[in-house]
Amino acid sequence: MTAGTDQRPLLSTRALTKNFRGFTAVRHVDLDVAVGSIHALVGPNGAGKTTLFNLLSGFLTPTSGTIILDGQDITGKQPENIAHLGVARSFQITSLFDNLTALEHLELALASPTGLGLRFWRSSRTLRRFRTRSLDLLDKVGMTDLADRNVGEFAYGQKRALELALALALDPKLLLLDEPTAGMSLEDVDRTIELVKQISAGRTVVFVDHNMHVVGSLADRVSVLQQGEILVEGTYDEVRTDEKVITAYLGQAQ
């Protein structure tokens, strides 16, 4: 068995189900993610990966089932509350603030747990107290030289890197990454793999990706979803050679 599987799970779902007007996007999912592991969710388009992510981060409310984070039931909580409990997520489609600089993004993320954001009577200069930490985070993803630029002018790969820094700024227990390498060139993919490895030290990560190279290099455990259900779960090598998985991806053999 791989390391980590016998540890207590940081995240568990039980019979997690989401219906959209009769269509079941996620069906009876029991998922356990061990503390400190990197867990990949793979599956063909429409398998329910992003819906599952939205359920885990509170953007959707499950139809039934429960989500337990670190022993606490977080089912049905609002996204902002789940974020405060230590779950950070990135989005599949790059999702940033075009009129803010990279530095301002990180200041915003770092200010989030402090309540400073509500002080409409204070100068925005008070946000400068987060500058050193913001620059550290930008340094981690290799972007210090872009600190003062508006994110609207960033190249795609730079935006994805900033997404990672932003998720990291919340110092999460659990990091949810929705297709961190989507639409990237080969070099950028390798850079991102290194980056995710680096930032996942001491954290638990759940990610979705279509690129099997990424999944193979990062994941301790892989869950394969098909039509909203977990088809197979195991290590990358176990899953890769599983007949059900091959059928799901390539269709029924003759």
Partner: peptide, 22 residues
């Protein structure tokens, strides 16, 4: 103000602002 910064973030992308815990 810091509040104004959050408002601009909400205007640009409210889902992302929520994911940051606001």
């Amino acid at each position: 103000s810091p509040f104004g910064r959050v408002l601009v973030a909400i205007r640009d992308n409210s889902a992302r602002t929520r994911a940051l815990g606001y």
